[in-house]
Structures are given as C-alpha cells and as structure tokens.
Design a binder for these strands. Structure first.
Lengths: 144, 144
DNA sequence: CTGAATCCTCGTAGATACTG
DNA sequence: CAGTATCTACGAGGATTCAG
C-alpha cells in the first residue's frame, strides 16, 4: 500500500504555493475561496487530526476513540466526529446491539488526507528538537 | 516541475503514521511528546500558515504582510510573528531608517515546513469541491 | 512605521448531569 | 454505550489608543 500511493502522490513545489497565494489575492482574498482558511483551519483544530489518525488503521467505536485520546471530552469528541462526518471525511455506522454501538471509519476522502497530514506530522516530529532549542534561545535572550 | 521534486520528497506511508500513534500511546500520550499537539496545533492556528506562505517568496516588512492578509489585526500579526520567531521559523531584521522598518524572513527551518504545508494546502484545494458537496448532502438530510 | 498596552467581547471547550 | 443538554470559564482575538 505504501507503494500503491507512491505514484499517486502529488508533487507540490513550494514556489507554486507562493504563486497560489498571489492568485488568492486577486479575488480579494475571500475566505471562502481560500483553502488555507476554509479547510486547514478545520483540520488544524484541537482534535481533528488526532481523531483522523486514530481511525487510520481501522474503524473504531466511539468509546474506543475516546480511550485513544484520553483527554478529549465526550462533547468535543461528538462534535468533532460530526463535523468530520459532515465534511465527508468519515462515515458513521450504527449497529443495533443491545447497548447500541457506533463505529466510525475513514471514507476514501478521509483516507486521502492522511498522506499530506503525515507529511506535516513527520516534519513536526523531526524538527521538534530544533524548535525547542530555538524557543529556549529566544526565551533566554528575551527579558521576562 | 511536478517531476523535479519527486525524488526529494520524503515518502511517508500512512501505516507508519498509525504506528507512530500507537507508540505515543505507550508514553501515556503526554502532550509534550506528541508532535501533533505540540506543533501542529501551533502552525494550524488562525494566521500562522498564511503568514508563512506570505513570506515564501521573499522577506517582507510588517506592513507588507498586513496588506497581504487584510483582515489580520496588528495585534495578531505582531503576536504570531513573534511566536514564529520564537520557534525559529522566521528571523527579524530591523533597519534603522527614519521611520523604522522591520523585515521578516523565513529561516531554513521555516522554509522546510513549506513543503509539507503545501501538500496539505493543495490537498485542501483539490478536495474542496468534494467537501462542499458532502456538506450540502449532510445538511440536506439532517433536520435543522 | 512598527509596535506595546488596554479593554472588551464572543466563541470554544470543559464540567456536570441526564437519556434512549 | 453513545450520546444530549446546560452552565460556566477561559482565552483568543478585535478595537482602540498610545509610543519610540
């Protein structure tokens, strides 16, 4: 599977990102037309990425996800799952067992975001040390 | 050009992302050890990504960035720039002109995040339509 | 021009309790 | 088990004003 996707991976050169930015400018920088604001804000919120990752391997039930992300409240879990479902990134499957059980799964669209998301996560992981160092330096040279 | 970078791009198979997630679990899911929470939350906030992109082509002055992102307040611009500087993603250069001018530039570390960021932005752009459709379907079938 | 300082508001998210 | 309902608190972020 890692092979299968290798060929698919869209090449996105950085200069093009800057050019895109220039283009958004021409439309008055309408928030609705700007994917950075419209989507990245959303998947960048406090719980979304974590939930997507927790569903990467297999579908999971509500309580299973909650166990995987211990400090999320039921309220935020419910809400974030619903937003994700609304955006078509996950699907919701209800099984009419005695105590009802509900399983959430990534949709194909949801699975497709794991690649770019992984890029960012692994960037964060590999640069984490550098960032911490920079913070320490900054805090040291900046008067409280 | 989509070809040129193909060789450079780190392949990050999705299964590995899920495995990483499993590992974080073992450490009690400490927020400090979790790059998703520690870093992605930060670059995923309201203005950070936009500012990074606006500096992608060249260093820019405070007021220039503000023009590029019309609806950011001076307060948030100052604050986000300072956080970015603290994290070592941008550098700050003061020129002692008559009215002082300050230019912000991406550091090598800052430039390095543009690649994964671009992946996500272009994902957002290419899937934007799908997401909007999903939203409409969801809202239509869901009783207000 | 590039901020710093203050005040104020609004939304997000946590806590708690309840339900099918 | 998988939510819903309500209340509250906190903090991000906007507006405004001042300063080097």
């Amino acid at each position: 599977m890692t092979r299968a996707l290798a060929g698919n991976l869209l090449q996105v050169p950085v200069p093009e990102l800057a050019d895109r930015f220039d283009e958004w400018q021409k439309f008055g920088f309408d928030a609705a037309r700007c994917p950075v604001r419209n989507v990245l804000d959303h998947i960048g919120d406090k719980w979304t990425a974590l939930i997507l990752i927790s569903l990467a391997k297999e579908g999971r039930r509500f309580s299973a996800v909650q166990r995987l992300i211990p400090d999320i409240s039921k309220k935020m879990l419910t809400q974030t799952l619903r937003d994700l479902e609304r955006d078509g990134l996950i699907t919701r499957h209800v099984f009419p067992t005695k105590p009802p059980s509900v399983e959430y799964r990534l949709s194909p669209l949801g699975r497709s975001v794991l690649d770019p998301l992984a890029q960012l996560v692994f960037w964060a992981e590999s640069r984490h040390g550098e960032i911490e160092d920079a913070r320490r330096r900054f805090d040291a040279s900046s008067p409280a």
